[in-house]
Write a protein that binds this DNA or RNA. Sequence first.
RNA 1: GCGGAUGUGGUGGAAUUGGUAGACACGCCAGACUUAGGAUCUGGUGCCUAACGGUGUGGAGGUUCGAGUCCUCUCAUCCGCACCA
Length: 813
Amino acid sequence: MSYKPSEIESKWQQKWEEEGAFEPSDSLIQPKKYILSMFPFPSGRLHMGHVRNYAIGDALARYYRKQEYNVLHPIGWDAFGMPAENAAIKHGRHPKEWTYSNIDYMRKELNSLGLSFSKSREFATCDPLYTKHEQKFIIEMYKKGLLYRESTTVNWCETCHTVLANEQVEEGCCWRCDNPVELKEMPGYYLDIISYADELLDDLAQLEGKWPHQVITMQRNWIGKSQGLSFTFELTEESKAKLGGKFEGYEVFTTRPDTIYGVTYSALAPEHPITKYLIENGLLEDDVAEKIKAIANMTEVERAQQEKEGYALGIEVIHPLTGEKIPVWTANFVLASYGGGAVMAVPAHDERDFEFATKYNLPIKRVIEGGEELPYTGSGKLVESGRFSCVESDEAKIAIINYMEEEGKGKGTTNYKLRNWGVSRQRYWGAPIPFVHCPSCGLVPEKIENLPVALPDDVEITGEGNPLENHPTWKHCACPECGKAALRETDTLDTFVQSSWYQFRYATNPKKWEEIGIDKEEADYWLGVDQYIGGIEHAILHLLYARFFTKVLRDLGYHDIDEPFTRLLTQGMVLKDGAKMSKSKGNTVDPDALVEKYGADTARLFILFAAPPQKEVEWNDSAVEGAFRFLKKLYDRKAKVTGSTLPEIDHGTLGKESKLARVKVYEAIQKSKDVYESTFAFNTLIAACMEALNALDKQESSEVWTEGMYIILNLLEPIVPHVATELSEQLFERKNFHGKIEVKDEVFAQESILYVVMIGGKKRTQIEVDPGASQEEILAAAKEAGAKWLEGMQVVKEIVVPNKLVNLAVKPA
RNA sequence: GCGGAUGUGGUGGAAUUGGUAGACACGCCAGACUUAGGAUCUGGUGCCUAACGGUGUGGAGGUUCGAGUCCUCUCAUCCGCACCA
């Protein structure tokens, strides 16, 4: 019988389904492995990236299951989000209907790949049961002061009609639709991720070596911690008067307090309250006011592309140390979102300040020695810096901070680039933010017993405005506190909130899902995820949020885990014709079609064989054929097997070719541990199995064949489970899938050892030596074999690398 | 600009971590079997050379008996952040 993947695969998929073969045990004492591939968004169909992601995770899950670990390998659906609403707008389908029908289709696709998921723990994040617990967390965070509502400048995507978090803005554009992001002032809910910035930063150290270095660095840079001095610039009396007594001064932050004596001007962001006040009260000339407003309307990206531009505001502040009067400007390079939206400017020692000062003829005062030209941004001895002159930069930084603190003029401060996480979305298809606006009580969280605050099904989705806002009745409710008429919050939560805690939900037994969100005992048993697998595109977004949420939930008492993902593998993209597969480029390969033509095993084998998982993999039709050919060959060789157990082989009696075949087989075993447990270089394990099969083909011992197939099927089962299980069932009653196969050292014992002979660093010949040969004997043999190249030469050094080579260093005699 | 990677045959990629570079596979070439095949099997295949031999891991140096692997400089490509004071 020839290899018929479709028959074999559907047979085993059905069997696994009936057996509930991949459910984890409820016993929480066994050694465990939690293997998690990032859950998919139910977009409609699987793509090759999914196949790769799940093939990697499945191989690991199956490997550990065979090693008798209790394995949790769950799947679910990241089901809220814009595309569902876009489908509603475009095709008039209800987001819920669209989402669930996509899930049904994609579940079948995943099934057809033979992935060993726990079916009982599958869920979609749009399930009100999931929302219920999430809303409870949100309310608890609010009560703890970690969630707050405020009106501020936000990133607004006009196409998606919603606010975006900082992490969701890529080069000034929306991460989802790629339209330029606008700045807009509006109220929203924020999670105080900054209060966890230090822990998020410090704990990266424990991920070192377990997460890709690149991801750790990206997170570190994103958090962007910097230390320095913050102090208040007090306005002069005239300036205070000009500002109607509304302002005493403003705060600035600097990482270079050592340059403070070099301040020659100060600059405010166009959005700074003082700038705004001056404009709104007509205290600037009309054309200047217009120009400042124009800057304020630009996005940060647009501003960054502009030349430095600014305007004198006609006010002055007092230098905190010299008492000098310093002019105040507004400038397009000062960011409203960082360090209070105001800076002290030291043109001599800062490139931006220098460029600006040069353009507007502002004074430049050197206060640090070093460098030939200005601006000089390095460190050095201070000059013209009062009592701090002659002190080195590093010391001066500390001394000046200390002095400012003593004098009550400023303090040492830490600043982060990280902004608090804006979680409000003005969209329908998300988890409602469980708050109520009461005219008498203000902002009130919904009562826990009333959760979930569920979405109404009867909505009109037009793309105009927020459907929840427009719904005739949904938002009208009674205040949870005073019972009077009130309005529900119509914002929904960012979908990244759902994916921030799903790893804990899977760990909780489904029997408890109704009652509790996270079971502490089970969470502490299963988490951290032993191996997490997903795309690099989540390096900051999801992976930072999930780390943050984990710490917050820990502090709320839900579990004791510090880091959710112990080990992380970021898989490379699947390319075709050198570009990422995408519908718009028309270079996709449909997993369904592939599975239909060659079977799931071929698809899985190809994608794991073509490249190591961390790298990009280029699609190659003939390499797919090659993978299929190998499986056909493997299947065909079942005829060579004569016994149904692992045979006892008398190694000494075997022929040379048979011995070599055994070496290859046992080398593959050794390789497999390394691959499955540390390097994930499945390509090399597959190659080792191919080598072993090639070597088996070159010999005739049926015992060696039996042993070889017994072992190879065991090693390949995680990668090509259907064909491996089928053959194992036919040949060995699946006995080869249980327990470890011991490596037999006798196989590696050699009768003679091959030494390469190098003379003068060049490979010249080789010799066969008895394993017991002494160093002298080996050298003698080498010299004899290499006599031709030693003529007229003098050996100056002799190196013998045991079991490998002899190197004779020579020079002309 | 800052940060992180990566450079090995025609292609995807190996290399026991300083020890025979190119495993395995794709492609290509030759042959066999076939009515035929884009099926299967066998053999070959880094480059230069008729051969002996030489040469070869982006480039240039260095350490070493020995370097794809370690060090210094350099070039190229990719990714992330980007006026963060």
